[in-house]
Design a protein around this nucleic acid. Sequence first.
RNA 1: GUGGUCGUAGCUCAAUGGUAGAGCUCCAGAUUGUGAUUCUGGCUGUUGCGGGUUCGAGUCCCGUCGAUCACCCCA
Length: 423
Amino acid sequence: MQLLPGFRDFYPEDCARRNYIIATWREVARRYGFVEFDGPMLEPVELYKKKSGGELVGQLFDFTDKGERHVALRPEMTPTLARMIIARERDFKKPIKWFCAPQFFRYEKQQRGRLREFGQLNCDLIGESSVAADAEMVALAIDMLRAFGLSGEDFVVRVSDRDAWKAFLDAHGSFDEAGLAAFLQVVDKMERNKPEVTETALKAFGISLEEVRAFIANPGTHFERFNALAAELDARGLKGFYQLDPTIVRGLAYYTGLVFEVFDRKKTLRAVAGGGRYDNLMSAMSDGKVTLPAIGFGMGDVVLGELIDATPAAAEKMKTWIAQRHAADVYIVIANEARRVNALGLVQQLRGMGFRVDYPLSAAKVGKQFQNAEQAGARCAVVIGDEWPQIKLKTLATRDECIVALDELPARLDSASPGFLVS
RNA sequence: GUGGUCGUAGCUCAAUGGUAGAGCUCCAGAUUGUGAUUCUGGCUGUUGCGGGUUCGAGUCCCGUCGAUCACCCCA
């Protein structure tokens, strides 16, 4: 049996990685005062059609259920979030700061950094339109990555502003929203396409490639919002983690102002995170009943995992976290099978105290048991045998061992400290 | 969705069209109350799947499934 293309099995080592990533996301999001929410994994297809106008439907993981409902596995969180906010908008103090880190799905041919099933952090700040909110979100994205042991040497946030491009376009003629979206598509692809291709595409707007290049080369006067954002980020000591990059516009139509994407400095991976302002989405999805400005970003687990692997300091940090979390505290060595009943009592007692305890389920040689203790990452071994009612306590790292009375054992173990063995 | 490359043991990979192999891992023993190293022994294959060419196919051809890279797209 093969697994479905683009889906993953999570063996314990994979699960540990995912747990580490999600736990770190949670910790940093909470540091910023964000609270966790979640929604259904399956939604009516209409939810996604309403927002995107059907363009994305081809990439939806959709099917018809037994009740003849056309449903889709969620490809992103924003529509669900918008529905939830709109339904109970008055119940929440503004600004609303929510995050979630669930699984998403899309039906696309998989390739490096992109699967059909993936985990993604979503952070959204709703009900605040100031540049302070923009700065808060960019700072959050930066601190998220720093929490993984990544530095300004490893990644950079490229920031842009769709409003600046809108002003640029307005100066060259009269265009509707669709025109702006089409124009931004051209800008988005400039970096990848040949100049002639861009030149041709720009003719539809009566704009020359030179004009666009001149705008990008001298953006200072057009990106006032960015300058205010930069001042806020510098005040936090985050200079060096971001840069203005007018060519970043993001693919989605609903972005309105600030947009940003996070890339690895070596530029060998696809975007690690991306987001921006979507001030009109709540209104559009509620037919004007709810009007709330919003800004959010997403961060995928697949690319982030690749960046961590490619960055020694980050990889080491992850390894340490996983090792600490999975190691046993105590391994009970049963040297004399006649004492197994006593060992079981001790196992239960220590587990009741909160220690992570392992022991052999069937008779095994002492040497084998110590080997198992080592592999379990146990910090100490308790040998139960002919010394009973005394036991032998051994610190595995130092190989020191001593004989102690059974009642003394709990006092020799201190679960509060990592090096809990009291000598 | 389009195109290139690749599918051999649990993993990494060999094998001119001629008997499917090695290293690592794993398991056991050397070592019946102590972890490393070492040594010895042992397990695992419809060569992704299905056809075709051939006396003979892991090898060549076609199809298919999967992986991977690029394009498309990117929530």
